[in-house]
Amino acid sequence: MASIEVRTSGPVFDGRADRALVAYCHDASEEIAEYAETLVLSELGHVLRHPTGYYESRVETERVSTDTSRVHDSGVVYGPWLEGVGSRNSPVTRFAGYSHWRRMKQLVQGQAPAMAGRILQRHLPGMR
């Protein structure tokens, strides 16, 4: 009869890897959302012709869950009109909208993988 003894140790077994992974997911979603908010606000600074500051003040980042953040305009009633998806946009009126949310979303989606990779590098030591 043979017996085998197995000993487990290290970050996977003592919980350090799990904690580092949770911290990574939190940081990645938060930093990417904050970047998206900055881009949207910057774009609004370029496209709005008569800014009052109200719409920009309503753009915010909100944590939806542990690993998900969302950037939105707090439901400002004329937000869809500014974006160009409202019922009062072209062809009803000449204003087609700025498409600022759609364009910034595409930009962030293109840059998010590289950003997430850089953020991961900060958390890898905790997984080793």
Rank of each mutant, 00 (worst) to 15 (best):
I4P: 15
I4M: 15
V6H: 05
T8Y: 14
T8N: 13
G10D: 04
G10N: 11
P11F: 07
P11W: 03
V12E: 14
V12P: 01
D14M: 10
D14I: 05
G15K: 07
G15W: 13
G15M: 10
A17Y: 04
R19H: 10
A20P: 05
L21E: 09
L21W: 06
V22P: 01
V22G: 00
V22N: 07
Y24M: 11
H26P: 01
H26M: 03
D27G: 08
E30H: 00
E34I: 01
Y35N: 03
Y35R: 12
A36W: 02
A36S: 11
E37R: 06
L39W: 00
S42Y: 11
S42V: 02
H46S: 15
L48W: 00
R49L: 15
P51Y: 04
P51T: 01
P51H: 02
T52A: 00
T52L: 12
G53D: 01
G53S: 04
Y55L: 15
Y55Q: 09
V59G: 00
V59T: 01
T61M: 07
T61P: 03
E62F: 09
E62K: 15
E62S: 10
E62H: 05
R63W: 00
S65P: 02
T66F: 00
D67R: 02
D67S: 10
D73Q: 01
D73N: 10
S74Y: 09
G75M: 04
G75W: 05
V76T: 11
V77Q: 10
V77D: 11
V77G: 03
Y78H: 07
G79T: 07
G79V: 06
P80I: 04
P80K: 02
L82Y: 03
G84P: 06
G84E: 05
V85E: 12
V85G: 13
G86A: 15
G86K: 10
G86R: 04
S87Q: 15
S87C: 10
N89Y: 12
N89I: 15
S90P: 00
V92W: 11
R94N: 14
F95E: 05
A96T: 08
A96Q: 14
Y98Q: 09
Y98A: 05
S99Q: 13
S99I: 11
S99L: 09
W101I: 08
R103K: 13
K105N: 07
Q106H: 13
Q109F: 06
G110T: 08
G110R: 14
A112T: 08
A112N: 10
P113H: 02
P113L: 05
A116H: 08
A116M: 15
A116L: 08
R118A: 13
L120D: 08
L120H: 07
R122I: 06
H123Q: 08
L124Q: 11
P125K: 02
G126P: 00
M127W: 03
M127R: 02
R128H: 07
